[in-house]
Amino acid sequence: MADSSEKTEDPTSKKTGDSRKKGQIARSKELSTTLVLVGSAAAFILMGEQIATAIFQVTQRTFTLSRDETYDFNHMFQAWGYAFETISVPVLIYMFIALVAGVYGTIALGGYNFTWQGAAPKANKLNPLAGIKRMFGMNGLVELLKAIAKFIVVASMAYGSLLLFQDEALHLDMELYPRNLFHAMELISWAFLMLCCALIPIAAFDVPYQSWKHNKEMKMTKQEVKDERKNSEGDPQVKGRIRRLQYQAAAKRMMQEVPKADVVVTNPTHYSVALKYDPNGETAPILVAKGSDELAMHIRKIAGAHGVPIVSSPPLARAIFHTTEANREIPEKLFMAVAQVLAYVYQVKAFKKGKGKRPPPLRKDLPIPEDMRY
């Protein structure tokens, strides 16, 4: 049998939401770093020549100043404006691409999440014993293996890029100026991109590992799931108590309406339904109270004490009980049967007042449709 304290259950939506509020979501530093570096390298390849050209133009202009321009303060500000105008556009494009890569790298795993709780200082992070445990735990071992793997992969890629660009680098001194400078920057850009791409396998390993690690940390025990459901939905015993109180309150209200009823239709041993009808109104007969077993007996007792006629018709009592809620009109399919019961009750009342003859007994085969028989 599984240990009840073992965390085997998936996290509930409430725990997931609470964790996000605390900043506890899956994050991959390797993915973020890789995307920033690869994006920066790609942006450098795209804008490197424009940046180099701008720097070359500014430098060339600076070294060709005349003596008068050197001592002219107004020219100093013009030189600054020229430098900014020349360099700003390609540099800003480069920075924008790097910024987008950095932002996407941060939210690619776990999504966007901003919370002050995650930035709040935690005393347990200052505990040296906990820090030592993190260093020599499973997570520390994985981080060590990732660091070793990054060193090996990056070193191998660096060596490979040196071999790849060796001939071109050795012949740069044979090229004309300033073409050799731009060629050197191009070689550096592609070498930088290759080194950055070397981190992709590390990030490809780290992303599923961080997701697995986060899901493992979020696992819950069966007892935790039960306790959380109990807290969110309410204690079953308390809910049962509330339902009983609600039922008792509803039953009490119904008992107060029984004396106002025109007739109580019963199945003598199980069901009782109290009906009220206003001949001058525009509504059908209304069910004012219903009950089964002990409550049915109580309805009959109250009806007898207040002189409300009690009529035995088991099929009709069951049909009304199962199809109609309290304070609701009876279904249209039962109009004919209820009308015959009310007519019988009114005739009995008239007979008792000496205003008519005794009515014949109520028919046992009242017109109740088959789909209304329970």
Rank of each mutant, 00 (worst) to 15 (best):
D3F: 01
K252S: 15
W116F: 12
H75L: 13
L245T: 05
E217A: 15
T86L: 07
M185Y: 01
M95Q: 10
D262L: 08
G356V: 01
T106R: 07
G304I: 01
A284G: 08
K290F: 06
N215E: 15
Y271H: 12
L99D: 00
L46S: 09
I330R: 04
P369S: 01
N139H: 09
E85F: 05
L366G: 11
I242V: 13
S66R: 12
T8R: 05
F351D: 11
L172Q: 03
Y94L: 14
Q223K: 11
T53Y: 10
K352G: 01
R300Q: 10
E294R: 03
W190N: 00
C197V: 15
I97N: 04
A284R: 09
E49F: 09
E228F: 08
I310W: 02
R61E: 13
F114K: 10
S40M: 14
D227H: 13
G17Y: 07
P90S: 13
R358I: 04
D293H: 12
V225K: 08
H214N: 07
K301H: 06
K333P: 09
K7A: 07
T324I: 07
F182P: 02
L172M: 09
Q248D: 14
L37F: 13
K276I: 00
L316H: 02
G140V: 10
A191H: 00
A52Q: 14
D235W: 03
I148W: 11
R244S: 11
G81C: 08
L342Q: 07
H171P: 02
Y112Q: 04
I320C: 06
P315T: 07
N127Q: 02
R229T: 12
S88A: 15
F63M: 07
Y82F: 15
K133R: 11
H298T: 10
S32F: 03
N124A: 12
P208G: 04
F84E: 06
S4F: 06
Y277E: 08
L334W: 09
T221Y: 04
A319H: 03
R241V: 12
K14W: 11
V264P: 04
P236R: 06
